[in-house]
């Protein structure tokens, strides 16, 4: 029998939402926010380490909220939502990293003449 002629069975795009999912998400978000805040206000580590930890905590909270609040990754087979989500992440990464890279490079190149001037003035002495 032709499978395409079968009546379509539309599955709901989300499985039944559970209260526990929101409670876990909320609890984890609170924990991550407060620990990042306390680490910064109490200078829990040296600055460079702290930057790494805070960035990592933000990433954890990002994943927590997209999973528990936005329910990303729970949809059934043709996974368009998560597909376009990863595409977005790619675009965002190119945009942010690219901008920073270009501007850093520009800064570096523009500052060369001044450094040369400095070197020259050192030579004159």
């Amino acid at each position: 029998m032709n499978r395409d002629a079968q009546p379509l069975v539309i599955k709901h795009d989300e499985t039944k939402l559970k209260l526990s999912s929101y409670i876990i998400g909320f609890g984890l978000s609170l924990l991550l926010t407060l620990s990042a805040y306390l680490l910064v206000t109490h200078h829990g580590a040296s600055r460079n380490v702290l930057v790494g930890i805070v960035a990592f905590l933000a990433l954890c909270q990002f994943i927590t909220q997209t999973y528990f609040f936005l329910h990303l990754g729970t949809e059934s087979k043709p996974r368009w939502k998560i597909g376009i989500f990863f595409f977005m992440l790619g675009v965002v990464l190119i945009l942010v990293v690219g901008s920073l890279w270009i501007m850093y490079n520009l800064n570096y190149r523009v500052s060369i003449p001044q450094e040369l001037k400095y070197v020259k003035s050192q030579d004159d002495l």
Binding site: T33, A58, F62, Q65, F69, L70
Partner: peptide, 9 residues
Amino acid sequence: DVIWIFIFT
């Protein structure tokens, strides 16, 4: 709220 995580951080 997700965007705010990044602004906060």
